[in-house]
Design a protein around this nucleic acid. Sequence first.
DNA 1: AATGAATGAGGGTTCATTCAT
DNA 2: TATGAATGAACCCTCATTCAT
Lengths: 222, 222, 222, 222
Amino acid sequence: MKTRARRKAERPGEILQAAFDAFAERGFAATRMEDVAARAGVTKGAIYFYFETKERLFEETVSHYSQNMLADAGAMLASAEGGCAERLRALLLHIYGRCAQDRYGRALIGLMVSDGRNFPRLVERHRRDFFAPAMGMVSDLLAAGAASGDFRPEIVAHGAEIAVAPSVFLSLMRLIFGASLALDEEAYIACHIDLLLQGLLTTKGRKNLSSRKACGEGRAPI
Amino acid sequence: MKTRARRKAERPGEILQAAFDAFAERGFAATRMEDVAARAGVTKGAIYFYFETKERLFEETVSHYSQNMLADAGAMLASAEGGCAERLRALLLHIYGRCAQDRYGRALIGLMVSDGRNFPRLVERHRRDFFAPAMGMVSDLLAAGAASGDFRPEIVAHGAEIAVAPSVFLSLMRLIFGASLALDEEAYIACHIDLLLQGLLTTKGRKNLSSRKACGEGRAPI
Amino acid sequence: MKTRARRKAERPGEILQAAFDAFAERGFAATRMEDVAARAGVTKGAIYFYFETKERLFEETVSHYSQNMLADAGAMLASAEGGCAERLRALLLHIYGRCAQDRYGRALIGLMVSDGRNFPRLVERHRRDFFAPAMGMVSDLLAAGAASGDFRPEIVAHGAEIAVAPSVFLSLMRLIFGASLALDEEAYIACHIDLLLQGLLTTKGRKNLSSRKACGEGRAPI
Amino acid sequence: MKTRARRKAERPGEILQAAFDAFAERGFAATRMEDVAARAGVTKGAIYFYFETKERLFEETVSHYSQNMLADAGAMLASAEGGCAERLRALLLHIYGRCAQDRYGRALIGLMVSDGRNFPRLVERHRRDFFAPAMGMVSDLLAAGAASGDFRPEIVAHGAEIAVAPSVFLSLMRLIFGASLALDEEAYIACHIDLLLQGLLTTKGRKNLSSRKACGEGRAPI
DNA sequence: AATGAATGAGGGTTCATTCAT
DNA sequence: TATGAATGAACCCTCATTCAT
């Protein structure tokens, strides 16, 4: 049994977690405060002690969750090794794991789509603090590759979105169709990275990649 | 003033249109029957003369709209000329126009994401009657290209999704971020098609494409 | 195919019949004008050509039906033979047939109970034109019996209601419990008449009754 | 001002009472939840805190009320003294008081007739838990009288219904015609019991009754 | 800090009634 | 006469929010 003080300190976090679960499952409109309360193991009134309105609860829930995702990506990238191609592959795999294959990552996209309309401040913050930096990481990688001669320079401007799109697309298909969509995700991802690198790499980049592989420095493609 | 008979024939369509507008703008839950009625120029009760419940109205609205989209894509593809690469480009451009740049196409995706949960039958029908055939069109094109030696055969299995993903991604970004997302769509699309074809074409396919262009048979990319 | 004029003349009656069926089955509130219209084979609007409102339709329906019942009872009584006891028995059997065992007779009672509240004029008319005369017939019979010395004179004042009550009670039980109430109606009726006559007859009346029976002038009890 | 806890404990009962009043006055369909709420001194929503739907409220209201009636009748009978005839008279008087002369008892019958159709479970429960036991009480009394030789044995099978019918009939007349029906209830009841006992008693039973009366042990009839 | 009874505004749905055809 | 599309007033029910305890 935790102490009362300890419980008290944890309440807001528990509520946020419960709220995210609930919103993720049913969306903003279909989630009742009582659903959240039940999940959090408190009563409706208690939520209002910590959050002014349902709208505020939603905003804090979503932004609380999206903040973590960026930090993780940064950490991952910092520790990645190899040339630009390998680093790009590692980043994409990370994104797949966080945004398409993780239930919560998927849910975050779903919530943005379904309820973002009514929370423009939240969306703007999400764009500024999460989406733009995340795309920036991919963009920077492409720019570095172009600078080193590994990547074709034409694609620096919009390549990041193109590179990331299939992971978001996969996420969306799962959101909409769920498990009823038959799709071999491993093969899908391999195909995506193969196609992307074929389109991205210069002749020089292609050589670098294969020579490094020959030296055993790279992982097998997926 | 139209005759009564004429009005009657048009009412269901007017209501469906009004409903699609309303649902697209606010989602299922936040849309009131009165909103739909007002848009259609009738009163709440009149809608119930044509549609049993709000749920049924939603289902018919969505499936009515998605049926049109597929027919259009088929017609477009039938009239497309040129080699596989040109035909693929034409199809992708059509998809961009219908699914990313058209307000209603975007809305359709948004509605599937936000409210599909509560309409499993509708989602399944949409998958079977719209999504699967649409992806099949792209898939068939890739298979034809692989057979003719223009496209790399490895990508036949999942290339369709990868090829289409950026258009859906763009659609999603506009849904979520709206106009606040600075993005040159023309350049984005050009980059996408360039990158995709680079990844897709074999050496032979590349020659076919450029020779046709040299003869003036092809349009400039985008 | 009937002529238009003929159809026209029959319409109100058809509607009244349909309305009575509908009201009898579901009560006033739960019956929709459309139900009545469907039963009558016309559309809602047509009903309003003949009846101002739903209330008026109800009133005319009920009073139209209740008018027949009294005439029948009078005719029956006029043709009844035998002494007071026999005539009383015949009358009670008639009442059983019309008010307890006939679906419509039962329904009439049900409608009076459930909806009479809101139709005071109707109820008053029913009381004056049907209920009071009907009770009067029974009362007169009792008075005649008392005058002739067959019936005990004490019961003339309220005996009619007491005599009739079990048939209404039976009607009510069927209305409420339907077929799920196990009850041998033949035996019930026999018991009722037996008990009633035992209570009613004077010593002289008893003799008259049995002597007539012995002469074969009377029917067996029930 | 009552404490909150106390109010909470009383609310359901207050609502049931208010609901019974309202339903009794207007029937199920014509009673609005707001009527009930206003009578109970709460708002519409509050009712839904205690009762799921209007249907459930109706069911609980009716069965709550009918349970009391049976218990009362049992208690009364247990304390009754005298021979079978006296006990029967006492029971009938009790029934008159509760089912014909009490506004609520009358209403219960009315509700069963008008709305029972739509609540088959309720009706069945009412039959099993109230009507059958209540009739059983009368039946048992008749059987005991037959066993002791006071009552004629032929009437055991259906005598209970015949005995009770006039009280229900009176109830019904008041329900339908209200005060506009001129009827001396005291005399009516006396007539009923007189007639019934005349029909019921054997010669022996008659002697027992009059001897006890002669000894001053019995009350005057009514 | 937390409870949970109570509020009250709002939305979906029904249906008697109307009226242009 | 008859139709049936359309109206509009109710009514049931939900749920975010409040507040006495």
